[in-house]
Design a protein around this nucleic acid. Sequence first.
DNA 1: TATAGTACCTTGCTATACATAGTAACTAAA
DNA 2: TTTAGTTACTATGTATAGCAAGGTACTATA
Lengths: 111, 111
Amino acid sequence: MINSDNAKAQMRKGVLELCILSILSQGEAYPTEIIDKLKETKLVVVEGTLYPLLTRLKNTGLLSYRWEESSSGPPRKYYFLPEIGQNYLNELQLSWIELVNAVNTTIQNTK
Amino acid sequence: MINSDNAKAQMRKGVLELCILSILSQGEAYPTEIIDKLKETKLVVVEGTLYPLLTRLKNTGLLSYRWEESSSGPPRKYYFLPEIGQNYLNELQLSWIELVNAVNTTIQNTK
DNA sequence: TATAGTACCTTGCTATACATAGTAACTAAA
DNA sequence: TTTAGTTACTATGTATAGCAAGGTACTATA
């Protein structure tokens, strides 16, 4: 059987930004927490993916962060959504719904 | 307002293969037809994207084609799914459903 | 002091799709 | 004969995402 793992990975791309912003709209979190939450829904992400993405979102103003001391290690960067990020997230969620509808229409016609 | 067009485009990537195979599992079609069907569901694709993708799928054995004369232009390449392609499509559809569930779970937790 | 655990970050790589532009062949109508 | 329309195909450069692997730094505890 032909392996579909790569195609699977390709489909995951592009939705990470949406998922991360969604998680942060729930409340602030630091990177390790974000990774754990994504794991719960089977969207596995590694640090090498997450950190550059967070930095990019911060540089465009869609995310902010504050430092907080930790009693169990180095200080943590707690990220949170400013209002502009929340607005952007709303747009992304709309786009996601439209995409799902478009793909499902295409798939369902085949049955 | 920050533009979400790029994020939109990124989300579309990776599902194209699924959509094209789904369309062909409905019955054979030639590239221009495929583009038109994708347009119907707002998944706009241009030739420069479609042709390399069809060639890749054909080279891995997931697609086949036959030539057919046309009364309104040059002969058309009708693509269709051999059985192995159908099996692969079934895997992709499963992956798609899993992805949608994972993302929707993440989004819905934020409300 | 040394080690383990936690946390942040960087660099180099691959794959995909896009934009754009071009070639070629066939049909039909002006 | 020329033009327009249809169809297939190719080539090149760009942007982006995500991954693998490794490095840096802080804290607590043995």
